[in-house]
Every structure is written in C-alpha cells, then in structure tokens.
C-alpha cells in the first residue's frame, strides 16, 4: 500500500473511530452510574440524524439551526426514555431494566418506521463540507482531503475535552462520579440523584445526536435501523476502553475504527465480515482483560 493511500485510510479511520467514541461516551456514562446497558442509545443516535434531516431538507432551515434542533430533540428523547422506561425500575433487578431498555430500543426503531417510513432517505451534504482540498508533496504524492473528514475528529476531541471538564471540575460532575461510586451514600449527602442521572442521560443523548448528525453527513442517508450496529459497536468500544471511563470510551472507539478500516484496507477479501470484527474483539477483550484498558475492577459485593 502506498503511503498516500495509507494516510487516506488513517484519516478515514480517525473519523469513524471518533464517531464510535462519541456514542460510546453515552454508554459508558450511563453504565458507570446505573450499571445499565442503555440499548436505546443507538436509536437516539438515529433520531439525531433524522431530526437534522427533517430540519434542513424538509423544512429548509439553515444547518446551524438544524443541528441545534436535532441535538435538543434527541436530548429530550433521551430524558423521556429515562423518565418513562428506566426510572420506575431503579430498585428492580438490573436485568429488568435491561429488558426495558431492549423494549425501548425496539419501540424507537419501529416508531420511526411508522413515522418516517422504513424507506432510506438521502441526506444532502452541504457543498462547503465536501469541497476537496488537495495536498501535494513530492515525497508521498497526492492526498485528497475533505473538510468533513477533518471536522469530525476535531469536533469530537473538543467535545470530549469539554465533557472531561464537566465531570472533573464542576459540582454536577462531582455528583456523577459520586453516584457511580456509591448511589445510596450520595443520596444521603443531599444530592438529587434522579436529577443527576437525568443530566447524564441528557449529556449522553446530546453526544449521540451529534454523532448521528456527523454520521449522516459521512454516509449520506438515514433509515430507522441505522442506529443498531453503530450502537452495538460503540458499546463494545466502551467495554474495550474500560466501562465507566470517558477517555477510555474515546480510545476504544478509535481502536475499533482503526481495526475496521485498516483490516479491510489491508485484506479487502474480509470486507463481508466487517461487522463481525467488533464482536470478535469484544469476546477477546472480555477473555483477556474484562475491565478494559482503563476500567476499574468492579468487586462483587457479598
């Protein structure tokens, strides 16, 4: 493989990995606090993509407003999911909440089929994002870059930085970390636990929506089931990075992005198995290091 092809694949993998990372953060935050795999997270991602599609293409709003509406809408959906389907089950066995999460995911997908129809729709990419920039260099030839390809990782990394600041430098962030450590004691300390959990869902959903919007720009179409696979893979990324850790989620996402893009770049015959890599990676990581790269050991309490 020539060097310029490699650089192309590298940038591609960086973009895909950053998107997985953004979705993975929502999983890792919710899991860190509630020990719940929020199956509906991938569908919030899908809703974000749909909302921006409708705002910009059906209602002809400018992109900036469309993105704001999409993020606000998806955040609201995330809050509703928590309020309706998860909060009544806080004291129930964890598996009950998990079944509820599966039900919600199923519900959002099929509701989208009813409301948006099952037909995939094309997203129109704004031309300024797609205008190619050519970088020529005598040493490794020509590289074509589009602004979108650079924008996705840059925005993602900025967002992660902001999120880390919220979690480690603000009061609500302190409450979040405290809940993930011991929910009952935190409640006794006078923290409004349900509010902080809602905030966690809101932040996670907003990031998922943002990822959905950028995903729809990269792969310009939306359909009701588009969230399933990115959702599963992002969860795997969260496990890989160490569940509960925000930098871990980003690292896991990037690792998964690189595994997927590079393995197909080097072994094109494996492209049919693309979606299986993540699951194989999951089984391997669970065998070798179940806590993930940056995770803390969860002790079973007796």
């Amino acid at each position: 493989m020539s060097l310029n092809m490699f650089v192309q694949h590298f940038i591609n993998a960086l973009g895909l990995g950053a998107l997985y990372g953004l979705i993975a953060i929502g999983y890792t935050m919710v899991y860190g606090i509630l020990r719940l795999i929020n199956f509906a997270h991938g569908d919030i991602f899908m809703l974000g993509a749909y909302f921006v599609f409708f705002a910009t293409i059906q209602f002809k709003l400018p992109w900036g407003i469309g993105v704001a509406i999409a993020i606000a809408g998806a955040t609201l959906c995330g809050l509703l999911v928590d309020r309706i389907a998860y909060r009544p089950l806080r004291s129930a066995p964890r598996i009950s909440a998990l079944i509820s999460a599966i039900g919600v995911s199923f519900f959002l997908e099929n509701l989208s089929v009813v409301v948006f129809t099952g037909m995939p729709r094309a997203v129109v990419q704004p031309p300024w994002l797609m205008h190619p920039i050519l970088i020529k260099s005598p040493s490794f030839g020509e590289i074509r870059l589009i602004p979108l390809g650079l924008m996705v990782p840059v925005i993602s990394f900025l967002i992660v930085g902001g999120l880390l600041w919220i979690v480690h430098r603000t009061k609500p962030g302190l409450a979040m970390r405290s809940i993930s450590y011991d929910i009952e004691t935190t409640r006794l300390m006078g923290v409004s636990v349900d509010r902080i959990i809602a905030l966690t869902f809101a932040l996670g959903s907003a990031l998922a929506a943002l990822a959905g919007i950028m995903w729809a720009l990269r792969y310009p179409r939306v359909e009701p089931f588009m969230g399933i696979f990115p959702g599963f893979k992002a969860f795997i990324a969260a496990v890989f990075g160490g569940i509960g850790s925000i930098p871990g989620a980003m690292i896991g996402g990037l690792a998964l992005g690189f595994v997927e893009i590079m393995s197909i770049a080097f072994f094109p015959r494996l492209s049919g198995y693309k979606d299986a890599f993540a699951f194989v990676l999951l089984i391997v990581i669970l065998l070798v290091k179940p806590t993930g790269l940056m995770g803390e050991r969860l002790e079973e309490k007796i």
Partner: peptide, 18 residues
C-alpha cells in the same frame, strides 16, 4: 400502518416489565 405491529408489541414489553 407498516411497523405499527412492532410498536404495539414493544410497548407491551415495556409495560409488562414495569
């Protein structure tokens, strides 16, 4: 209404589990 069947089905699942 295509898809409505599964919407009802999933709502039932959530209602039962709650």
């Amino acid at each position: 209404i295509p898809g409505m069947r599964m919407v009802i089905f999933s709502v039932l699942l959530i209602v039962i589990i709650i």
